[in-house]
Design a binder for these strands. Structure first.
Lengths: 131, 131
DNA sequence: CTGCTACTTGAAGCGCGGTTCAAGTCAAGG
DNA sequence: CCTTGACTTGAACCGCGCTTCAAGTAGCAG
């Protein structure tokens, strides 16, 4: 076999994902092993890059099937492109919301109201977040 | 009964949450009805504020039990304060990550590589996100 | 009284993102 | 040869955040 390929155990260690998660991703069409080393799945080094991308997108609130779809994206697919644009707007809004939430938390940490949620400053901040 | 109280159906409409969700939140200790109107739960108007806060925190990636804990927060609880501070750092990091992800998406939308994920610029952006 | 509507309950079910389990298999080491 | 250890499989299970269901009830209109 090609010894540039990496066994699943090693990929798991380097990516920080459990082997069970890698198999799960395979079932979902997110990744593919290049071959086998005995029974063991063997991956190309690029798989690590792809896994980093997957982890990052998942952390950002993408579902695994959205990620699978985006991974298959080709420049000709206008509909998918539109969905990516929509996702970008969604992420932008989320950034704004989280920023305000962070400010609320920052205040709450050093605020002395009892209970904390009764603090008028905090309440006002929350109104800014949801509004 | 006190007619400043609001029936669950009305709270559901105004908050955008399903009545089943409100009952679920009650079981989880996130909210309480002030009384009953026949069988129907009746809430104080402030409940709407609290629900806005809950929705906002949930959207930000807090679990319901984290939210319940934060809602009960009193200024004297130093341990909880530390957890809030930790959460604030977490949210900050998330904001940074999402910002970079948004930039990647923004690029991907107008990029012509086939498939899109092979674009070197995109890959580099992803490395910035996960790194 | 008879509907009718909107709620009530506890329990079961669902979609997501995995993990865990039992039973089996391969490769290497002694 | 036999053991060990890390994998293999499909299937079952888990926690989260609810929704849905069946069976029942309060209030109101006619």
């Amino acid at each position: 076999m090609d010894d540039t390929l990496i066994d699943i155990g090693e990929v798991a260690r380097q990516s920080g994902l459990a082997p069970s998660a890698l198999r799960f991703y395979e079932r979902k069409g997110l990744i593919q092993a290049e071959g086998r080393n005995g029974l063991r799945r063997a991956y190309r080094p690029e798989a690590l890059e792809r896994l980093a991308l997957i982890t990052c997108a998942r952390d950002a609130g993408f579902t695994l099937s959205e990620i699978a779809e985006f991974l298959r994206a080709r420049p000709s697919d206008a509909r998918l492109r539109e969905r990516m644009a929509a996702k970008e707007r969604e992420v932008s809004e989320r950034v704004a919301q989280l920023t305000r939430l962070r400010d609320s938390l920052r205040h709450a940490v050093s605020c002395d109201h009892d209970p904390l949620i009764e603090c008028p400053e905090f309440k006002q901040a929350v109104r800014r977040v949801s509004g």
